[in-house]
């Protein structure tokens, strides 16, 4: 469009300005893509090094650090990964149920109370997680609980439920209220209407939200940092400890596994529920 107009006229101040616009925008956008993707590619390649250091580019390629990662020497990492997966699964399921119910109650309500509740439920996304992590530690210790996976799970549910609420509420906004009226006037019970009408419509949003909640729990640092103990070690905290002490190349291998799993999961979720569309509402 604008290219045509600039072609018709002789080179002028405006077409120069437009050319500078394209040059600037595309250069910076290219830089942004490089910044977003570069680190991922670099870590993936580094994890295949045959050397002892994190030098990039690696001197030679091998799978030795992956072998090392799956050997018996890495049992603490395996245990931490198992804990993280278990907590993430339970948190995501609980968040899906609690979040779905709450969004049914507040998403379509115009009452003031619903707005207040909505901001309460969404606040863990904005408030500093580290403050909540400390608060949870103080709270659970004072009512007499010792750190355990169950407590970590409770903390994670608080932190990840907003993801479910957001996507489910967006799906509910697309639900036509008259469908429910029809269903009710034809004699369906509320539970039947929910199962046959509401649930199928919000299901993709619910699954996308549950998936985000799962990933957020796997990735959670603030709560796990304060509530995990040697007996209930969590993967991000263990990896952080490994990074703090020595730069173990096994971390690159763990990262490699993370990257590949995320790519696969994203493709699967995109097929199943159109993940990117759900998150971009």
């Amino acid at each position: 469009m604008s290219d045509k107009t600039s072609l018709k006229h002789l080179p002028s101040y405006k077409s120069l300005a437009d050319a500078s616009y394209s040059a600037c925008i595309y250069t910076v956008a290219g830089l942004a893509l490089l910044i977003l993707l570069g680190p991922v590619v670099i870590v993936l390649i580094t994890s295949l090094t045959d050397g002892q250091t994190l030098r990039f580019p690696p001197t030679g390629l091998s799978l030795r650090w992956y072998q090392e990662l799956f050997s018996a020497r890495s049992t603490p990492i395996h245990r931490a990964a198992g804990n993280s997966l278990l907590v993430a699964l339970v948190s995501a399921l609980a968040a899906a149920v609690l979040g779905c119910m709450a969004s049914l109650a507040i998403a379509r309500s115009r009452r003031r109370g619903a707005r207040v509740m909505d901001s309460l439920f969404m606040s863990p996304l904005i408030l500093p997680g580290i403050a909540f992590g400390l608060a949870a530690l103080v709270y659970f210790t004072m009512i007499g609980f010792r750190p355990s996976l169950a407590l970590i799970t409770i903390g994670h549910i608080v932190m990840v439920t907003p993801f479910v609420l957001r996507t489910t509420s967006a799906s509910l906004a697309q639900l036509d209220g008259t469908l429910l009226e029809c269903s009710a006037s034809l004699g369906a019970t509320r539970w039947y209407s929910f199962r046959r009408i509401t649930l199928p419509i919000i299901f993709p949003g619910l699954v996308a939200g549950g998936f985000m909640a799962f990933m957020a729990s796997i990735d959670n640092v603030p709560v796990s940092l304060f509530l995990s103990s040697p007996r209930s070690d969590m993967l991000p905290i263990r990896l952080w400890g490994m990074m703090e002490s020595t730069l173990d190349v096994r971390i690159a291998a763990v990262s490699g596994i993370f990257i590949v799993s995320v790519l696969v999961l994203m493709l699967v979720m995109e097929r199943l529920v159109g993940l990117s569309r759900r998150l971009n509402d």
Binding site: I42, P236, L265, M266
Partner: peptide, 17 residues
């Protein structure tokens, strides 16, 4: 979207390299 889903620990580790 990919960096959002990728663990913060992994993203931070990349920047050390």
């Amino acid at each position: 979207l990919m960096p959002v889903l990728l663990s913060v620990v992994v993203r931070t580790f990349a920047w050390i390299v």
